[in-house]
């Protein structure tokens, strides 16, 4: 089995070694990750998932800024205990507009993938300001400034434009808007239109009054709006309990 091969060729040629090393370690990625982009069943075909509204998106920004993901995952795994505790397992489809996704693997606090609608707005506000007043054994820090800091809405359109660049279907032009109407329906499409973003945000915040204080739009408004939409986009009652089995 002598191909006249010598270690020396590789070991004395750093360029060749770099290329070969790269090839060797990229095999894993090529086999495990790349095919996902071509396989039909990577993302479940499911109705209702839409990009976040401007207010929800701003809430998501705050969620990231405060580092919530360091303690909270947003990924319910297909295990019995998780299903019983958190609800239906997370679908790939549900985080298709998340950039970056918030799946996580560290749960100091509970998973938040389906926290939307589980508690009232008041609970979230009180809990974020003083977690232990709601859950005595909690180790979560207090976030009182969310309630007192007004949301900076001036760069909302820019943030949405950035997300549009990475593939979130926020619309800038009329054809894009029309496409959204076809895909998501008019109500949602209106929320996804970047030129109207600020207006939409103010409208949703004033209508929802998430932080219980009608006087201004606080960061709390945005964050609670985001938390309340988490995991609520898909209506699972429309599907049988094994509808998503074939997608794995």
């Amino acid at each position: 089995m002598n191909f006249n091969f010598k270690h020396e060729w590789i070991e004395t040629n750093i360029g060749l070694m770099a290329v070969l090393t790269m090839l060797a370690i990229s095999v894993g990625g090529l086999v495990e990750i790349a095919p996902l982009f071509f396989i039909d069943k990577t993302i479940e075909k499911v109705e209702g998932v839409r990009p976040y509204t401007p207010l929800e998106q701003r809430g998501r920004d705050i969620y990231q800024r405060e580092g919530c993901y360091l303690c909270h995952s947003q990924m319910i795994r297909p295990f019995r205990d998780e299903k019983l505790r958190y609800g239906h397992y997370s679908l790939a489809a549900e985080s298709q507009y998340d950039h970056p996704f918030q799946w996580g693997s560290k749960r100091t606090g509970p998973d938040l993938a389906r926290v939307g609608g589980k508690y009232s707005n008041e609970w979230h506000v009180q809990h974020l300001v003083a977690p232990r007043s709601m859950v005595p054994e909690s180790v979560m820090p207090n976030y009182p400034w969310l309630q007192s800091t007004l949301l900076d809405i001036s760069d909302t359109t820019n943030r949405m434009k950035a997300l549009r660049k990475v593939g979130v279907p926020y619309s800038l032009s009329q054809p894009e808007y029309d496409a959204n109407v076809t895909q998501f329906g008019e109500t949602v499409a209106r929320q996804l239109h970047i030129p109207d973003a600020q207006e939409n945000l103010v409208e949703q915040a004033n209508f929802g009054n998430y932080d219980g204080d009608p006087s201004g739009i606080s960061e709390m408004d945005a964050l609670v709006a985001y938390l309340q939409v988490l995991g609520t986009m898909v209506d699972f009652s429309k599907y049988t309990d094994d509808a998503f089995v074939e997608f794995r």
Binding site: F79, R80, Y89, D242, F247
Partner: peptide, 11 residues
Amino acid sequence: WNTRALLMTDM
């Protein structure tokens, strides 16, 4: 075999 089908049997 997959974990979602496994969950079905578990449930």
